[in-house]
C-alpha cells in the first residue's frame, strides 16, 4: 500500500512472530532429526532430511491455510494475516528443500534427466505405480509462483483481482499435496497414526473453510426489506457504535454504515485492496480503516487515503426519527456524498 517498495515493512509484532516462526521451524527440524536418529538409527541422512523438510512444510501449510477462515470466525486472529505471507514463503523454502533433496537422492545418477524422471520414473495407473511425485512437483511449481509474486509490488502491478486469483492457486497446490502424501508416503508407512493425523488435518481445514463460507454466505440473505422509494430503512442511530459500523445487506451487496463525529456515512463494505470487510473496521484519524490490511478511505467520498488511489462506492443517507435510511443505489466510486448529520436530525 506504499509506493516506496520495501522488502518487508517490519514492525515489532511482525519481527516477533517471524522470529517465533523460524525458531519453531528450526526446533521442529532438530527434534525430527533427533527422533529419527533415536528410533531408526540406520536411516540414510538424505531420507531423514527429505522427511523432515516435507513434514514441516506440510504442517506449516495447514496452519497457513487455517488463518483465513479463522479470521472470519474470530477477529482476534486478524493480526496473523500480516504474517501470512512470511509463513507462505517459509513454507515454500521448506518444500523447495524437500524437492531438491528428493531430486538429488532419487532422480540423479541415471541416464534420465532428473526433471524428466520426476514425472516418468514412477508412473502407472495402480496404487503401487501412481505418479505421486508429479503431483508434488506441480504443487511446488505453484508455490514457487506464489513466493515469487508475494511482494506488494506484484499486487500493485498485476492488480488485486489477478494477484488474488493467482494466490488462490494455493488450494490447487494443497489438493496436489494431499494426493502426493496419500499416494506416496502413506503407502510406505504402516502406522494408523499417520493416516489419522492427515485425516484430522484435512478434515479440520476443510471444515473451517466450509464453516466460514456458510457463515458469510448466510448473511448475504439477511436483507432489509422496509423501503420508501429508493431508501431502505436500516437501524437506529444509537445502535451504531462511535467510529465503528453496522453492516446491512442491500439488494445483494453489503453496505457499511459508519458513525463518526456526529455524522453518518455509508460506503461499500468491500475493500478494494483484497475485498476485506470495511464494516468490521474502525475510523482512525478520520479514515475508515480496513481490519484486514489497514487500507484507509475517506468516508465522505470513498477515496483511499493518499498516496493510494483506490475508490469505493458511497451511498446517500438520511436520518428519519432517529433511524438511518440508506439509498440502495450506489454512487460511483469516489463520489463525494453529504453525510446525514445526527444533531440536525434530532
Amino acid at each position: 500500500m506504499s509506493f516506496s517498495y520495501k522488502a518487508i515493512d517490519w514492525t515489532p509484532f511482525k519481527r516477533a512472530i517471524n522470529n517465533y516462526l523460524w525458531v519453531g521451524i528450526s526446533s521442529y527440524l532438530a527434534l525430527f532429526t533427533l527422533a529419527s536418529i533415536l528410533f531408526t538409527p540406520t536411516i540414510s541422512l538424505n531420507i531423514m532430511l527429505i522427511r523432515a523438510f516435507g513434514s514441516a512444510a506440510f504442517l506449516l501449510l495447514h496452519i497457513i491455510l487455517a488463518i483465513g477462515p479463522l479470521c472470519r470466525i474470530d477477529s482476534r486472529f486478524l493480526p496473523l494475516l500480516y504474517i501470512r505471507r512470511h509463513m507462505g514463503v517459509s513454507c515454500f523454502i521448506l518444500a523447495l528443500m524437500h524437492g531438491l533433496l528428493v531430486i538429488f537422492t532419487h532422480h540423479t545418477g541415471s541416464d534420465v534427466h532428473p526433471l524428466v524422471s520426476v514425472f516418468s520414473s514412477d508412473s502407472g495407473s495402480t496404487i503401487s505405480t501412481f505418479p505421486f511425485q508429479a503431483f508434488g512437483a506441480i504443487a511446488l511449481g505453484i508455490m514457487l509462483v506464489m513466493a515469487a509474486t508475494s511482494h506488494d509490488f506484484w499486487l500493485k502491478n498485476l492488480s488485486a483481482p489477478i494477484w488474488k486469483s493467482l494466490h488462490m492457486l494455493v488450494y490447487i497446490a494443497y489438493i496436489c499435496i494431499i494426493i502426493h502424501v496419500t499416494m506416496g508416503i502413506l503407502q510406505t508407512e504402516n502406522s494408523i497414526v499417520y493416516f489419522l493425523l492427515i485425516f484430522a488435518g484435512v478434515t479440520t481445514l476443510c471444515t473451517l473453510h466450509v464453516y466460514a463460507a456458510i457463515k458469510e454466505f448466510r448473511t448475504d440473505f439477511t436483507a432489509k426489506t422496509n423501503s420508501d422509494g429508493d431508501l431502505v430503512e436500516t437501524f437506529p442511530v444509537e445502535d451504531i457504535p462511535e467510529d465503528r459500523a453496522r453492516i446491512i445487506n442491500l439488494h445483494g451487496e453489503r453496505v457499511a454504515i459508519f458513525k463518526h463525529d456526529g455524522k453518518i456515512y455509508a460506503v461499500s463494505n468491500v475493500c478494494q485492496h483484497q475485498n476485506g470487510p470495511l464494516g468490521e473496521g474502525k475510523i482512525i484519524n478520520g479514515c475508515i480503516t480496513c481490519p484486514w490490511h489497514g487500507m484507509q478511505y475517506h468516508p465522505e467520498n470513498g477515496c483511499a487515503k493518499e498516496p493510494s488511489t483506490e475508490k469505493i462506492p458511497t451511498f446517500n443517507t438520511v436520518i428519519k426519527d432517529g433511524v438511518v435510511w440508506v439509498d440502495h443505489k450506489p454512487n460511483l466510486p469516489g463520489s463525494p456524498v453529504k453525510p446525514a448529520v445526527i444533531h440536525e436530525a434530532h
Binding site: 527440524l29 527434534l31 527422533a35 529419527s36 540406520t42 504402516n190 502406522s191
Partner: peptide
C-alpha cells in the same frame, strides 16, 4: 508441532 516431530519418526516402519 513438536509432538508431531517426535511421533512421525517414532512410528515409522522399522526397516
Amino acid at each position: 508441532a513438536f509432538l508431531v516431530a517426535i511421533l512421525l519418526p517414532a512410528l515409522q516402519v522399522h526397516y
